[in-house]
Amino acid sequence: MDRPRKDERPDYKTWKDIPLTPVCNFTTIKGNPTGGWRTFRPIVDMDKCIKCGICWQDCPDAAIVWEEDHPVWLYSHCKGCGICARECPSDAIEMELEVKI
């Protein structure tokens, strides 16, 4: 689009004359599957899990959701940083190398 010439530009006197502008339109970035970045996959051993919620709390990607009373990993978005595995108090999570099947 060409930039309007000076005499064509709107003549705003006060802020009230400025048209409403969207600040952001809430299209979520959830559609961006950052799981593709992952080299190591966190795998939980539910027998060891004490359902404390630490992994859910500590994930920088909000890639663990809490269902009923236990954590569920969103592998579509988990980047494999390994924080959940390191912080889990009962050592229930292993990081396993991703393999293409």
Partner: peptide, 17 residues
């Protein structure tokens, strides 16, 4: 949450960032 989570549950920061 069936069990109490350590923090408020609502996520205002979505995954995918």
């Amino acid at each position: 949450a069936g069990k109490k989570l350590p923090l408020p549950e609502e996520e205002l920061m979505d995954p995918g960032h």
